[in-house]
Design a protein around this nucleic acid. Structure first.
Length: 604
DNA sequence: TTAGGGTTAG
């Protein structure tokens, strides 16, 4: 019964989603045996000898296909180990459905299979996100007289996590323990802890790890690292610190992975002082930084606009004979782009090849984004066109960045043409793409179309986020549709979203411009009570909106409040102020204004 | 011979 399930599962997969081009036998065109076999020509043909197969010569799917068909024709048959090895080499090349095809053929032709080949097959189903077929294969296990072992179950657990079946996985793990079906080992424990963390169940992972600590299956450093990484990624850095002391207290020495996760977590929340302490701790424990740790530091500095310091860290890394990888180059490119130093970014991009590496699609995307941000859209476009010439494929981010760049220069037709091209190439738009398109429509004054697009996005089951709504609210305000913008703004809580400071600022600015001062003031209070403090932009926008209407006196209370909040008047607001003040004849008023706007030392 | 942590982008 179970066998039938498994066989039909395989047929189903073969017949449907993974229709394979290798289903023909290798014929006269296949390479000679000697390509893969090192001692095929035996001295004594009368006593057939199983040749040694050189798996290191398999570099592509074609090699595996030819070798497999050669192996099937061999007499005597190669060992089950040889077949397992070929399957696992194929899996490493990520050709899961071919590995499954081999397994299927082996069984049909009576080639040997054992628990290893079956576990590899299960792994393939798991990696193809068909853990259900993996479970179905357990039937073949029992039918063949084999018992699934701890590796088989670990594989299935990983498969369930990949398939988002978190609750089922917890049940399975508990069952394995309760019924003593197998002893969990380090890999299984790590798989469960890591899977729970990646599924966002960090507290459950921590509870499990604590419970396991009191058993004979004590988690090792890797399991602790997985949990610690989960805590850091979830922003729970202080809990991670507690866990770190606990593991040290329990005699588990942290390693470079432990510290890398901690440093990443601290960088994410801007606790650079603690990063320094940890780096000292690493030095004291004789734990060297690796290329990833360096990248975390370099990336954090670049994101903070401190590219010079990032270059210094790079220098230390080079002194330690660690070569930069593509991640480090990309961090530096982003860092320079963020500062608007696009030519420096291009220099870093060009130096990737000098480092013996090739730019990947992410480094292209970063540079394309940099050129677009600087308004140098034509240069971005040339890079965009270069991508396929380098054997790479433009992905959703490449397209969205480029479309955004074109829209920002009001090249709406080109942007839409590119969007159509993207769809034709089966690159599927995501929320960022939709937000970009919405923003583009609004910039072009097509707010009706933007609202239609929003409905279409919602209809597709994609949940617009606050950025999407922000683009639309901004567009509506700028196109004089404050009423519609406010309706949308008021609907945000019912859609599970809280307006951010930018959205409040847009609405408040528009209310000021339209003369709804009381409403603007009450929204200003509201945002503060909701824990969304107005910022320097909010105040500048309010002042400018009032100045646009020549309401200088209305603006004064806001101008007076700005220094108290540590905000200054930005250049655009300042020049508007100067224009308005020229018409005033009241000396006292002017002095008052100067006291607000200019630094104290200049006024005195 | 099977299963195993961390880093990149609007």
């Amino acid at each position: 019964m179970r066998r039938n399930v498994a066989v039909s599962a395989i047929r189903l997969i073969r017949g449907r989603r993974f229709a394979a081009p290798w289903l023909h036998e290798s014929g006269i065109l296949s390479p000679p045996f000697s390509l893969f076999f090192s001692n095929f020509h035996s001295d004594r043909p009368s006593s057939p000898k199983v040749p040694t197969i050189d798996f290191s010569r398999i570099h592509a799917l074609d090699d595996a296909i030819h070798l497999f068909h050669d192996m099937l024709r061999m007499r005597p048959q190669p060992s089950v180990r040889a077949y397992s090895k070929l399957m696992s080499v194929t899996v490493k090349m990520k050709h899961y459905s071919f590995a499954l095809y081999m397994f299927d053929e082996m069984r049909l032709r009576g080639a040997p299979v054992d628990e290893y080949t079956m576990t590899i097959a299960i792994n393939c189903y798991c990696l193809l996100k068909r853990v259900d077929f993996g479970f179905a294969l357990l039937g073949i296990f029992f039918k063949s007289g084999y018992e699934p072992n701890v590796t088989t179950f670990s594989t299935l657990i990983k498969g369930q996590f990949l398939d988002d079946k978190v609750a089922d996985t917890v049940k399975l793990f508990k069952k394995l323990l309760d019924f003593r079906i197998c002893e969990p080992n380090d890999v299984m424990i790590l798989t469960v802890i890591d899977g729970l963390c990646k599924a966002g169940q960090i507290i459950a992972a921590r509870d499990l790890l604590c419970r396991l600590e009191r058993t004979r299956w004590r988690p090792n450093v890797k399991a602790f690292n997985a949990l610690l990484d989960g805590l850091c990624k979830g922003g729970l850095v202080d809990d991670a610190f507690q866990l770190l002391s606990k593991m040290i207290h329990n005699g588990i020495s942290p390693d470079v992975f432990t510290y890398s996760s901690m440093i990443q977590g601290l960088c994410n929340v801007g606790r650079l002082k603690d990063v320094k302490d940890l780096l000292n701790e690493m030095a004291n424990s004789n734990i060297s930084l690796n290329v990833v740790t360096f990248n975390i530091l370099i990336d954090a500095l670049c994101k903070d606009g401190k590219v010079k310091e990032a270059e210094e860290v790079l220098g230390i890394m080079l002194q330690q004979n660690i070569n930069p990888d593509i991640f480090i180059y990309t961090s530096l490119i982003d860092g320079y782009c963020l500062r608007g130093e696009i030519n420096k970014a291009k220099q870093v991009f060009d130096s990737i090849v000098d480092g013996g590496l090739k730019p990947d699609i992410i480094s292209y995307n970063s540079l394309i984004n940099g050129y677009c941000k600087e308004g140098r859209v034509d240069e971005a476009w040339l890079l965009f066109l270069e991508v396929p010439c380098k054997g790479l494929e433009q992905n959703i981010r490449t397209y969205t960045t480029m479309i955004h760049g074109l829209f920002s220069k009001d090249r709406f037709n080109d942007g839409w043409k590119l969007f159509k091209d993207m769809e034709a190439r089966q690159v599927h738009p995501d929320l960022h793409t939709y937000s970009t398109l919405l923003d583009g429509l609004c910039r072009n004054g097509e707010t009706e179309e933007a609202l239609l697009l929003l409905r279409m996005i919602e209809g597709k089951g994609v949940n617009p986020n606050i950025v999407t709504y922000g683009a639309l609210i901004n567009g509506l305000c700028k196109n004089g549709k404050l009423g519609v913008a406010r309706d949308l703004f008021n609907q945000l809580p019912s859609r599970g979203l809280q307006p951010n400071v930018q959205i409040y600022t847009m609405i408040i600015g528009s209310l000021c411009e339209e003369g709804f001062m009381e409403e603007a003031k009450s929204l200003l209070v509201e945002m503060e009570t909701r824990g969304c403090a107005p910022d320097i932009v909010t105040y500048n926008v309010i002042v400018r909106s009032l100045l646009k209407k020549n309401e200088l006196h209305e603006a004064i209370p806001f101008l007076e409040e700005m220094p108290q909040r540590g905000f200054s008047v930005d250049p655009a607001t300042f020049s508007m102020l100067i224009d308005q003040v020229q018409g005033q004849n009241e000396d006292d008023f002017l002095l008052k204004l100067m006291k607000i706007v200019l630094p104290k030392e200049i006024v005195s």
